[in-house]
Amino acid sequence: MKMRIEAIQIAEAFNMKKFRAEFRTEVFSGSTSEAFYVFPEHDRFLYLFDYGVVVFANYDAVAKSEFLNFLKPYALNPVFLDLTEEYQIETDAGYPKTMVKNDRVVVPKTDADTLRIVMLNTGQSVALEYYEKLTDELITSSKHYILKLERRGKLNISKKELLKYIGKVLNVKNSIVDNLYILDDPNLVWDNEELNLLNKNLKANFDIIPRFKDLDYRLQIVEDNLTLFTDVLNVRESARLEWIIIILIAFEIVLTLFSH
């Protein structure tokens, strides 16, 4: 038996407190930052993360669409990008142990804890894809200014534009730092060797750790560029102030000469 899992980046964040208060289903497990739901009557599973990701397991198109419409009021800063990650969990009693493959994980039996680990890693992967796209945009923007600096020997950017760019960079970095916990192992793997191994294998399959390190490296490049831009802008502002002072002194000398 195969079960389809789909993770979607809906927004930058969810109002989890409000959602859990108004979603009339008891949470199976979770915390202030996530909520995992089990619907045994439909054999469905749902995982919601406060960094704006929702993960469906065994949902058809109609049920998924209905829930996404319900979720809209709780989405903070919706993301209008096609950011999804699909995976499968296959139940096969003939397998003596869990096997993680590129497009699916094969397990001897499926239970809520196993589904939760698979859905967690699928959700982490799509969240990393979102941050990768944001950092790509930042790097592209910084390259644009660097090319202008190389060709013209000056930075063609206003102080207001630079401050807006700095704000965007800091916003992305703070968002990533706030969600660093996505790399943490869930509590349920600590005392369960099989779940712990499954979690590690899924992290390796989705390249979770290498992708996060690459993300951090690229953000550091953007920050280094910001430092350069700021220094160039400060030099430009200093030169402008010096000319203003020179002009004022010259004007004062001219006035003094005429007054005598």
Rank of each mutant, 00 (worst) to 15 (best):
N15M: 07
E132C: 07
K17A: 14
V232Y: 14
E66M: 09
L198D: 08
V54C: 14
V105P: 03
V55L: 09
P186F: 07
D103N: 12
L215D: 02
R151F: 01
I5R: 02
A7H: 14
F28N: 11
L202V: 04
E6A: 02
D82R: 10
R44I: 08
R240C: 03
V38K: 04
L83H: 13
S125E: 01
R24T: 04
T98P: 01
Y217G: 05
A57K: 09
G123Y: 05
A7G: 10
K2D: 05
L226W: 01
I5V: 15
E242L: 10
R104Y: 04
K154Y: 02
E6W: 03
L215Y: 07
G52I: 06
V118M: 10
N58M: 07
I245C: 06
G94L: 06
Y217W: 04
T114M: 13
T230K: 03
R218H: 12
A21H: 08
R44P: 07
L195T: 13
D191P: 07
F70T: 08
E150A: 00
K168Y: 09
K160V: 11
F36R: 08
Y47I: 04
I5L: 11
K2N: 11
K154A: 00
M1F: 05
E41A: 09
I182W: 11
I8G: 11
Y87W: 14
T114R: 14
K154H: 05
R151C: 00
L170W: 00
K17N: 15
E6G: 01
E161I: 02
H260S: 01
R44T: 11
K109P: 01
L233Y: 03
A93C: 06
A204L: 13
Y131D: 10
T114Y: 02
D136E: 11
L197N: 13
K72H: 15
L115C: 13
I246V: 15
T122Q: 04
V177E: 14
P40Q: 05
S29E: 15
I117E: 13
D184W: 10
T84C: 07
I146A: 09
E194G: 08
A35M: 09
S259K: 10
F229K: 00
D231I: 03
K154M: 06
I221F: 10
N234H: 03
E242A: 09
P108A: 05
R4C: 03
M99I: 14
K72R: 15
E242N: 09
V172R: 03
A11Y: 10
V100Q: 02
L241R: 15
G153W: 04
